[in-house]
């Protein structure tokens, strides 16, 4: 078995995959929260902008979005380095799904909680971040776990825009050695391992954020 001799290059690729996943996830969270709050705004313009964002990025494929930013943007004089194209495109894509998850979780907080914030004269903004969002977070964690794993798997697309991620390295090694079975089995296991890390992280987060809310597992 010469799995070991593949490992250094594969780990290098896995590190790139992990970085892109982490950066894209961060961007997705920012975009998701922003778009969700905009969609819940009183102002039609904000709601409209957020709706366009969500529909465009949910309604087109992540691969096309990547290619578009990679091949089309340079025609408009916008040159972004491929690594950044990778995490920005995926972050925007997952953020559009995340926005709906966040909006749903916020709207699922009982109406009485909003009324209580009015009765103690909070501003709408204070109500949102002091009372409503803290209660919505435990509900959004499981779907965000799903999205994070979707994102991890979608990062393999960046191998098509010259980024040397895990999938890119696997194809490179395969082209060179033709040890297809070993290489792709190893890749599979490495993605699985990363996904399990995400799952474990989300579970911890869920446990931590729902403490004392009087719900959660029996």
């Amino acid at each position: 078995m010469d799995l070991l001799r593949f490992l250094p290059l594969m780990l290098e690729g896995a590190w790139v995959t992990a970085q892109i996943t982490a950066l894209a996830l961060l961007l997705a969270l920012v975009m998701g929260f922003t778009a969700a709050l905009m969609r819940l705004s009183r102002y039609r313009l904000l709601r409209g902008v957020a709706t366009v964002y969500v529909e465009v990025f949910r309604g087109t494929s992540a691969l096309v979005q990547l290619f578009w930013m990679f091949y089309v943007l340079p025609h408009f004089g916008v040159n972004i380095d491929p690594f950044m194209v990778g995490w920005v495109a995926l972050g925007l894509n997952i953020g559009a799904y995340g926005a709906e998850v966040i909006r749903g979780a916020i709207q699922a907080v009982p109406k009485g909680q909003y009324e209580a914030t009015i009765a103690v004269n909070m501003t709408r903004w204070q109500a949102m971040y002091r009372v409503i969002i803290p209660q919505a977070i435990p509900n959004m964690i499981p779907p965000w776990g799903n999205l994070s794993i979707e994102l991890l798997k979608a990062t393999s697309l960046v191998s098509l825009i010259t980024i040397a991620d895990l999938t890119f390295r696997a194809r490179q090694l395969n082209d060179r050695t033709f040890e297809t079975v070993e290489i792709f089995t190893l890749v599979l296991l490495m993605y699985l391992a990363m996904a399990l890390v995400i799952t474990a992280g989300m579970r911890l987060l869920e446990h931590y954020t729902s403490r004392g809310l009087g719900r959660g597992g029996i």
Binding site: G112, A116, A119, Q135
Partner: peptide, 13 residues
């Protein structure tokens, strides 16, 4: 003005 509700609506967190 302050208000007390039938179902309390305390902040659970």
């Amino acid at each position: 003005i302050g208000m007390v509700f039938q179902h309390f609506h305390l902040f659970p967190h």
